[in-house]
Design a protein around this nucleic acid. Structure first.
Lengths: 133, 133
DNA sequence: GTCGTTGCAAAACGTTTGCACACCG
DNA sequence: CGGTGTGCAAACGTTTTGCAACGAC
């Protein structure tokens, strides 16, 4: 565990959900010389050994978090808002997928997408202007 | 509806699920001068008016398909294989999300991720080497 | 002439690679 | 020494942007 790696892990823990770029910023606030390449390499390494995980929120860069940070993410098509909810919501689905076709679902790795309540309310005959997915 | 746009729409229909680059290739096979910028702009336009949709299969470029092509996609973490299944599988979840937090789920927009049956079988004490997500 | 559409080049974004240097055993 | 980790620059794949030219009304 090198100093850079410790800083990356600390940043992931502090930031909760963060893109490699955000993590890089956080790390550089205490060690400006650290390069973003190192961030990527370190995140990759830590993911392989099971220290962190990444989640695709739809658009753009994935976000990294601690392995224990287990949530299902809901991303709004229209405003891009991210809501977290319990992985338990997908237990039934996971069981059915496993039984039906032998697919072992990882509910937390990708965000589910849809329309959040406020956008649904606003979406009265006004077509979506932005799809941030 | 310009000739380019018709070609893009035809390509989306012929290819089923295709990335912008693949669509560009298909279009250029009959009209070589068409630029990929036009593909992007046209797909964007057609998505806004509801002719096509795009789906994130995890890694890399999204795939475009006709609006009617409604599937839930399952992508394997390890081998990257894509399975299609019925959107009905998520009906219960969609209902619960709508009731609990007012989130209107679009089950077909992102692929669910996990481990396919063959990779799960192969995954006996052999850690994943590739995560294509 | 005005507006929308196109092609092209360049930029932008997120990520990966090659390579040389430094450090630690 | 040898091997690992790092920084830097450059490449990469995908997407967006600026701009000039074209065409339809």
């Amino acid at each position: 565990m090198t100093p850079q790696r410790q800083l990356v892990l600390d940043a992931v823990r502090e930031l909760g959900h963060a893109t490699p770029e955000q993590i890089c910023g956080q790390v550089q606030s205490s060690a400006p010389a650290v390069n973003i390449t190192t961030i990527y390499r370190t995140l990759d390494l830590m993911e392989r050994i099971g220290l962190v995980r990444h989640t695709h929120l739809g658009h753009g860069a994935p976000t990294y978090s601690e392995l224990e940070h287990q949530h299902v993410h809901l991303v709004c098509h229209t405003c891009g808002a991210v809501t977290e909810t319990s992985p338990g919501l997908l237990d039934g689905l996971a069981e059915r997928l496993r039984g039906d076709i032998g697919f072992d679902l990882d509910a937390t790795h990708v965000a589910l997408s849809g329309l959040c309540s406020s956008c649904r309310d606003a979406y009265v005959d006004r077509p979506a202007v932005t799809d941030q997915q």
